[in-house]
Design a protein around this nucleic acid. Structure first.
Length: 551
RNA sequence: GCGCCCGUAGCUCAGCGGGAUAGAGCAUCGGCCUUCUAAGCCGAGGGUCGCAGGUUCAAAUCCUGCCGGGCGCGCCA
């Protein structure tokens, strides 16, 4: 239970008694320093201007009229007019008992119960391997989906697969050119073609499978290259994502929007609303009516621009009836996504169901110097190379530990360190250490009692840890509602820290009494669950043992 | 030129639905392993929260302007 919701009725009552009910809605905050109590309200400060009285006086009067159960909570007036509440140790141990009984459901909420959410992420074109930016997108999207699931949403994880259009044609042409070059032909490479080494790999595969039978240039042969290239790239992408523990529920093909008539349908709908016009042989959408720029939807060649299927795709997601649609996009989509949303709004859709999570770019550094190219391949770093070098846990954590809206500097030297410097190991170590305690107890024939009385946990390290654990559900909810996984990462660091401190000051096996030992087992068990489930939401493994690095 | 994001400790960043002494990690310095994993704990130093105005009882947090950095502004995706 939240301390706020516990206090609200008492506070409301006191406000009524002093004739100040309904003037403001009381704000609560968790004080930065423990001396200021467990939770504070600034309601007296908020009321000062309405009551035209010094806030300190209002606070004192409120304190006098608060009828709090003394065995649970006390109040004091402090500073300019804060009301600081301090709960008793007994109150917190009862909360601990409660959350221990919740087991693995502790942390889950029902704010999304009965609602369906769709989270679209990665959605990279199948024209090559995934890079760093895709990695950040993947980690963010997957974690946001996990967070929403913990809030009770029924979550669909979706990948929008851009397999129509110009870029794919270019992929086919690039592969075809390499294929011909492998045959020794002096065949020109397309000017904007894909230069990566993998294009040669695909061409070699084609050579193995088709021999020289594609040598005669034709649309059909280039189409074979395109198809094989798409298949190769997509398989590659899926493998990379699987290494990060990511699997989508739905792979939505862009070309299906054309085949199923959804592109035509959206064009018709826009035309009916008078939002389309022709100029220079192209079809434009009149977004300038909504304060934006007009854009081409159908090129004079008859091809759609990428905006057209994007609108059709988002319309399709809206039509599928999701209560919440989340798009995780890189900063380069800033301009276009607003066009899509504006068009959908013009079609009468409720676009407030769509939330766009934009993340900024990733720069890779090593010793403070920007790394553009991989030393191994000489090409720009791929996500696979990063996973090879660092493993999925470190990669995911580094992508998640910063707010999406900030530029992310991925420091290779720090990430490589398998020791104290690396923040991800700090969390995993706390978990492994707890597991070790239970192993140690088991080896000595001690059986932890899950239902033990925990009222004796009144020491500062014990109380600090309990107070932190209690906040787990609230932190998940906040991270989910703001789409900011780093809030959870930071919280888990605090939990790990509080546990390490507790560990150093309080023995479990070897406690003063059997009762104390059993109570501390319960505390360790709840901490273990919070760490395991928190790490699972971030998509990071919780190892039951970690070998100590050699000095 | 326009739009979005960022400017907080030597470095990387939390905090920013306003609140009481601005935090963490790394780096630096000093303590702690006959006891459940020292990948740990305890402590120290280090800040005009880019600058200037404004709103407020109260601004790192909200508003405006400026300065600095990133990204975007195609009949490319």
């Amino acid at each position: 239970m939240l301390l706020e919701s516990y206090l609200e009725p008492y506070l409301h009552e006191a406000l009524e008694r002093i004739g100040a009910a309904g003037l403001v809605s009381p704000e609560f905050e968790v004080p930065r320093v423990p001396e200021h109590g467990d939770i504070a309200t600034t309601v007296a400060l908020q009321l000062a201007r309405f009551l035209r009285r010094p806030p300190r006086h209002i606070a004192e009067e409120l304190a006098r009229h608060l009828r709090l159960p003394a065995h649970e909570v006390s109040v004091e007036v402090a500073g300019a007019g804060f009301l600081n509440f301090r709960f008793t140790a007994d109150f917190f141990t009862r909360l601990l008992r409660h959350i221990a009984d919740l087991g693995d459901s502790f942390g889950r909420s029902t704010i999304g119960a009965g609602k369906r959410a769709n989270v679209e992420y990665v959605s990279a074109n199948p024209t090559g391997p995934l890079h760093l930016g895709h990695g950040r997108n993947a980690a963010l999207g997957d974690t946001i989906a996990n967070l929403l699931a913990w809030c009770g949403y029924e979550v669909t994880r979706e990948y929008y697969f851009n397999n129509a259009g110009h870029q794919m044609a270019l992929l086919g042409q690039s592969i075809y050119a390499r294929y011909r070059q492998l045959l020794g032909d002096d065949y020109p490479f397309p000017p904007d073609g894909y230069h990566g080494e993998y294009i040669w790999d695909i061409a070699r595969k084609l050579l193995e499978r088709y021999g020289t039978s594609l040598r005669q240039e034709s649309d059909e042969h280039v189409a074979i290259c395109r198809r094989e290239g798409e298949r190769w790239c997509f398989a590659h992408i899926r493998r990379t994502l699987e290494r990060m523990g990511i699997r989508h529920d739905v792979y939505f093909n862009e070309d299906s929007l054309y085949h199923d008539g959804k592109v035509d349908s959206v064009l018709n709908a826009l035309r009916e609303r008078g939002l389309l016009y022709e100029r220079d042989g192209a079809v434009w959408i009149a977004l300038s009516r909504f304060g934006r720029q007009d854009r081409v939807l159908v090129k004079s060649t008859g091809e759609g621009t990428y905006r057209l299927p994007d609108i059709a795709y988002h319309r399709d997601k809206l039509e599928r009836g999701y209560d919440l649609i989340v798009d995780v996009l890189g900063a380069d989509h800033i301009a276009t996504i607003d066009d899509v949303l504006t068009a959908l709004k013009a079609l009468g859709y409720d676009t407030t169901r769509i939330t766009v999570v934009l993340h900024q770019f990733v720069t890779l550094t090593e010793g403070g110097q920007q790394v553009k190219m991989s030393k191994r391949s000489g090409k720009s770093y791929t996500l696979d190379e990063l996973l090879d070098e660092l493993g999925p846990d470190v990669v995911r954590f580094f992508f998640l530990m910063r707010a999406p809206s900030t530029h992310l500097e991925f420091e290779l030297e720090l990430a490589r360190q398998q020791t104290e410097a690396n923040p991800v190991f700090y969390l995993q170590y706390a978990y492994a250490r707890i597991c070790s305690i239970f192993r140690h107890a088991h080896a000595r024939g001690i059986v932890p009692d899950e239902a033990a009385d925990v009222r004796c946990l009144t020491l500062p390290p014990e109380q600090t840890l309990i107070k932190l654990l209690v906040r787990f559900p609230e932190r998940i909810r906040k991270a989910a509602q703001l789409y900011e996984p780093q809030l959870l990462a930071e919280y888990l660091r605090e939990v790990a820290q509080a546990f390490h401190t507790f560990y150093h000051e309080c023995r479990i096996v070897g406690a003063e009494t059997p009762e104390q030992m059993q109570a501390r087992f319960v505390l360790a068990r709840v901490t273990q669950r919070v760490l395991r489930n928190g790490l699972a939401i971030l998509g990071i493994s919780a190892p039951e043992r970690m070998e100590r690095a050699e000095d």
